[in-house]
């Protein structure tokens, strides 16, 4: 289990990561290392992270997504998180985690369009991960 790695695919100038397994600390750490290395080695300008098969995101995983987005941005590659399930989005906001600084899109296609647009027009990077910002809402 500790040797398991999340595969990173190269698609033109972008990298595609599909998270399909339960993330733990070890796996998250490996993903950060592998992804930053791959960005450096390939010169990728964007990362698409497909989380459509994740049925929960807790603060640990949310923090990991924020951290990965910040790391790749520093290496000049934007990360777009795609495919979040509606129930996960509702829960994340109620939890108090709005993923500030993380670009999101509904699906891989739209995520890809965002990355291509940014590549062509050199769009402004999103704000850095601000852990001080919280928009928690009450329970429904």
């Amino acid at each position: 289990m500790s040797t398991q790695r999340i595969p990173i695919l190269k698609m033109g100038e972008f990298l595609l990561v599909t998270i399909q397994v339960e993330m733990d600390d070890q796996l998250a750490m490996f993903l950060q290392e592998d992804l930053t290395n791959k960005v450096k080695d390939t010169g990728a300008r964007g990362v698409l992270m497909d989380i459509s098969s994740l049925d929960i995101i807790d603060s640990f995983l949310g923090r990991m997504l924020c951290t990965i987005a910040s790391m790749t941005r520093i290496l000049d590659a934007e990360t777009v998180v795609v495919g979040m399930q509606p129930a996960v989005a509702i829960t994340l906001v109620e939890l108090g985690l709005t993923l500030p600084g993380v670009l999101t899109a509904l699906n891989v296609e739209k995520g890809m369009a965002i990355l291509e647009e940014r590549l062509r027009h050199g769009g402004e990077g999103a704000n850095a991960c601000d852990t001080g910002q919280r928009n928690a809402v009450g329970i429904q």
């Binding site: 939890l95 985690l97 919280r134």
Partner: peptide, 19 residues
Amino acid sequence: DGYSSINGLGLGLPGARRL
């Protein structure tokens, strides 16, 4: 919100309470 003893975002307890 925001209180964390080790490297978290400090959302664990208050976040769980809201859910």
